[in-house]
Each structure stands twice: as structure tokens, then as C-alpha cells.
Amino acid sequence: MISPRARLTDADVRRLVKAEDEEERAAAAHKLCRAMDRNELDPMEREAAQKIMRVLAADAAELVRRALAVTLKSSDLLPRDVAQKLARDVDTIALPIIGFSPAFTDEDLIEVLRVGDATRQTAVAGRPFVSRDLGEIIAIEGVEDAVRTLAANDNADLSERAMSVSIDRFPQGDVVTALAYRKVLPVAVTERLIGLASEAVREHLVSRHALSADTAIRLATGARERATVDLIDQASATQDLADFVAQLNARKVLTASLLLRALARGVMPLFEYGISELSGVAHSRAWLMIHDAGPLGLKAIYDRAGLPPRLFPAFRAGVDTWREMITEDADLDRDHFQQRMLERFLTQRPHAGREDTAYLLDKLDYGPAEDILVGAANAA
């Protein structure tokens, strides 16, 4: 093996090609490539190393070329012309390079995609990083296996257009499922997938990703829908809570029941924005009246919001419970915060309706839910 500061020269090339047995040459190639990749090379050594790689890439023995491809598949030492040559070789040599080498430009990879078979297209789609432009080409031109691999690759920078094209081309099966399990999805794509996915995947979508208010309401109230959505969970997931709440109000589902359930589950931001929307008071002022205006502030803005007087004791109990939890259990994670909040609220026997109590008991029985945003820190 080459020592850390040994120079790579033409003598190294001669020693490598001297062996007649291809297995011996492959072993020597592997050791030499590994040494070149691990050591810091000065410009002269780097030039000599790349000369050796060109010799290896032209070796008649597949084992030697494979040793080069596998050992240096992720190395930035491999020159672009060598990577291009290896990408045109047999699959055992080409696929590691196509799938990992940083030597390629997007133009190189698009060429591989367009002239390669399904296996090579899939290797391109599964690379450690796929640019937005390349992702769109794969979505438009790739075979189904390549598009599925792209959809499942969270390191691929997928545009909404690429996702939509993928759904248009393969509206059933593994592509839809792979897209559904991506970490981040645009709202419009999520809603398209809900209409196509299996019931299990649909449930995953509505629990993991934000929906528009219209879709959330439809899924929450539509008896014929296979999947239902909890509006409180969706309000917690949305990035623009003020707009979401305004849409709920426009659809006449921003009710006292919804706000009480949100409050009892510790989702204070939904309660705050809901009170703000119903009362016509700016959120900042509504927040002050709920939290910092003394015992009469909550009652004043509650009445202004037009909420039922008979339910005020339950709302009062919810706000008081939330404050106690913030004071006592500031270090609890959000799941346990919600669980404790529900337990404490329900033991106070608030004057909630039977349906609301049943809903809260069901949430308590279900246990901590990973994706519910308690929002305590934001409201504090």
C-alpha cells in the first residue's frame, strides 16, 4: 500500500500492469485505489493517480475495472472522463459509478437516463443527491421503477411539477405510495395522493401532512370518505394558522366545540387564533386578553367572540389547566404534555358536552400522538 506521502509515478503504473493474472491485478488495483483515495495528494500526485485510473479503466479484465469502479465510486478523485467511460461499461461496473460518482454533471446523468435501460435509470434516481432539474427529467422520461425510486429518495430535490407528473404517469401502485411517504409534500400533492392512495397510505397522509382547510373539512365531515381527518391535528400542522382558522370560520366549522377540544388537548394556538377570528380582535391583543389581562380578560374576549355562556367554565378550566402545565411541566415533550393536559382537564369535570367529552376520552385512551403540535412554547 502507498504510504501517506509516497509519490505516484509512472513506476506505479508499470508495477500494476506487470501482473498477468487478472485477479492479482484486480487486488493490486483495489489496494492502490484505496490508498489514492485515502491519502492527501499534491497536484503532481493527483495527476499521476488519475493517469493510473485511466489505465485501469482501459484494462481488458472486468475484475480490474470493477475494482476501480467500486473502490472509487464516491470519490471526487475520479476524473469525469473516466466516470463517463465506466458508466458505459457492463452493469457490474457502471451501476456503482452511475449511482454514486460526484464526477458527473446533470447533463451526463440525463444522457445516461436517456440511453440507459431501466436499471441504469433507477441508479440515477437513487443517487445521494438528485437536483431539481434532473428530478423533473426522471419524472417525465423515466420508467416506473426509476420514478418510484426517485419518489422514495428524500435526498432528491423534487419540485411540485415533478411530483404531479409522476402522479399523472403512474396514478396507481408503488409511485403513489413512495410519494406519500416523503418527509415533505406540497399541500396540492398531498390532496391528489389522498384521492389515489390505499386506505392505510391515506391515513398516513392526513396524519403527517397539512391539508387545505377545504379538504380538511371535507374529510372530517364526509361520511362517505374512507379516511377522516382531525381538524385540530391539521390546524397544528398548517404553517399559516390565521388563514386556516379564517377558512374554518367561513365554512362555519369554527365552533365552540372545536375550540374546547383544541384547548383541552393543549393546542393553545388554535384556541387563541380561533378567539381572535370570532371576536374580530387582532391575535396579539387576543393573546394578551387570554393570558395577561387578569381574570376578566378571558371572559371579556370570550363574550365578544359570541361563544356560549354555559361553556365558559369549561374554557376557564382549560386555560387554567394549560397555565398550570406550563408552569409545572415545562420540560415535558409535547406528547406527554398533551396526555397530562387531557388527564388534568378531564378530572376537573368541566361542563363540556357529551360528544366533546367522548372525543377527549378517546384521545386520552389512544395515547400520545407524535404529530400533534401542542404549541406551548409558541404561546408562552
Rank of each mutant, 00 (worst) to 15 (best):
D303C: 05
P186K: 05
D133G: 12
D362P: 00
S166M: 07
R323W: 03
L56D: 02
R14W: 01
G367Y: 11
L16M: 11
R114T: 04
T190G: 03
R354M: 15
V13G: 09
V176S: 10
E160F: 07
A242M: 02
A6Y: 01
D292R: 08
T327M: 05
A377T: 09
L205G: 04
L16R: 07
R202P: 04
D42N: 15
I52T: 13
G195L: 09
G142Y: 04
V143E: 07
I97M: 06
L263W: 05
H351A: 14
E40W: 03
F312T: 09
V64A: 14
Q50P: 04
A330H: 15
V229I: 15
G297M: 06
S284N: 11
H351R: 15
T105S: 13
E203A: 13
I217G: 08
H209R: 13
T221M: 11
H209P: 05
A330R: 14
R224Y: 14
A57G: 07
S74C: 03
H291L: 12
A220E: 13
D145A: 14
I372E: 01
L95K: 00
S131V: 02
A125K: 00
L196D: 12
V253N: 01
R349G: 01
L41E: 07
L95Y: 06
K18W: 01
S207H: 10
A352M: 15
V267G: 04
S236N: 11
I217W: 12
L373P: 02
A58Q: 12
Y302I: 08
D12F: 01
A300W: 08
L56R: 05
A242S: 15
S257P: 07
D76Y: 12
K85I: 04
L278M: 10
F271Y: 15
V124N: 03
A256N: 14
F345H: 08
L72Y: 06
T105P: 00
G280Q: 07
